[in-house]
Design a protein around this nucleic acid. Structure first.
Lengths: 123, 123
DNA sequence: CCAGTTCATTGAAGTTTGTCAATGAAGAGA
DNA sequence: TCTCTTCATTGACAAACTTCAATGAACTGG
């Protein structure tokens, strides 16, 4: 029998900030399996070069927000692919989407990156 | 033509701490593609529930080290699979391996987790 | 109402990843 | 020397991921 992480139980996947609300840093004591899955999910959303660049571009943009059309050219990928990555980041709690007219504007969720970082740090 | 992250150029993949040595945090300015790949690589090594647990168990162990045989039972996976995950963590610079007799002992690289965390943090 | 723009979703194809069984290498102890 | 233990590597397979082209939904401006 093969086992795949996160397939056995149906765990609730929280946005980063909620996931960080409860827990001790990784190295203090052995992390429970469920928390490990949650943190892994948060990290996986971040563990892609394109998504890191998207976050970076959004955060560094005028007014701290950007629409899809601003993002396809810098990352050099098709619009559907960019939308796909953005969805992953929104679902994980790093970005928010607000639709105004025809455009979708994406913003960094304040504190979301610090929340994951805080779970990794040793201190 | 399909493009896959990290396949186009042959970039040198540094251990976490070296990768963190140079760079500004993610949100200050747009991260260059090469740095994004490097950081994504570091995060990917961490973005798995089993590997997070392995790090956690090793760090919380007696003497801050553990051998493979101590690790298979807690994570509930086969020995080859655990060795595989450990290799990924060593290659990424989070763990070191030291062989003593028949046993391989794994230790957390001090500062490695803080290094990645520092690249994510907003401040 | 029609044409054009922006963007999300769907479906498909190739790549990568996580896992195990089987095997092999290397040291420990009889 | 022979056997046992520990661990890494190999090969195979299924699931998940990344990407694109095609499509459709929704708003904008004539």
């Amino acid at each position: 029998m093969k086992r795949y992480a996160g397939r056995v139980t149906t765990i609730e996947l929280l946005p980063v900030i909620d996931a960080a609300a409860c827990c001790a840093p990784l190295t203090r004591e052995t992390i429970p399996a469920e928390q490990a899955s949650s943190l892994a999910h948060s990290l996986k959303a971040l563990a892609d070069p394109t998504r890191l660049r998207l976050i970076s571009i959004v955060a560094a943009s005028e007014g701290q927000e950007a629409c899809v059309c601003d993002l396809t050219e810098p990352v050099g990928l098709s619009q559907p692919t960019v939308s796909h990555h953005l969805k992953i980041l929104v679902d994980a709690g790093y970005l928010t989407r607000s639709k105004r007219g025809t455009w979708s504007y994406y913003r960094l969720v304040p504190g979301s990156l610090d929340a994951v970082a805080g779970l990794l740090v040793t201190a």
